[in-house]
């Protein structure tokens, strides 16, 4: 039994791959839905400002608003070599 389950666990079924992909996607899309409508535009504009100084892409910026919109959290991943010069 132990050997059997060892072999079984090595191979992930396609259904469990589907479930994992969906969980990530649905969580992301629900989050998008609950965001205020101006957020994508604001993200673009903030990114444009940052891009004037450092080389960043859209994926490097994460903007989160908490539920009642009182805290704006901005995470920018700066490139390793450049940035502070």
């Amino acid at each position: 039994m132990g050997i059997l389950s060892y072999f079984r666990s090595k191979k992930q079924t396609s259904a469990s791959v589907a479930k994992e992909r969906l969980q990530v996607l649905v969580a992301y899309e629900r989050n998008q839905r609950t965001q205020p409508e101006y957020l994508p535009q604001m993200q673009q504009e903030i990114l444009a400002v940052i891009a004037r100084y450092v080389d960043v892409s859209v994926d490097d910026v994460q903007i989160n608003l908490d539920e009642d919109c009182s805290i704006l959290e901005l995470n920018v991943t700066l490139p390793e070599h450049r940035g502070q010069d």
Partner: peptide, 17 residues
């Protein structure tokens, strides 16, 4: 197909939605 791991189970879909 669910038993064979080829299709999302009813529990999977319930959990997601």
């Amino acid at each position: 197909r669910v038993q064979a791991g080829e299709m999302l189970s009813v529990e999977d879909v319930r959990e997601i939605l």
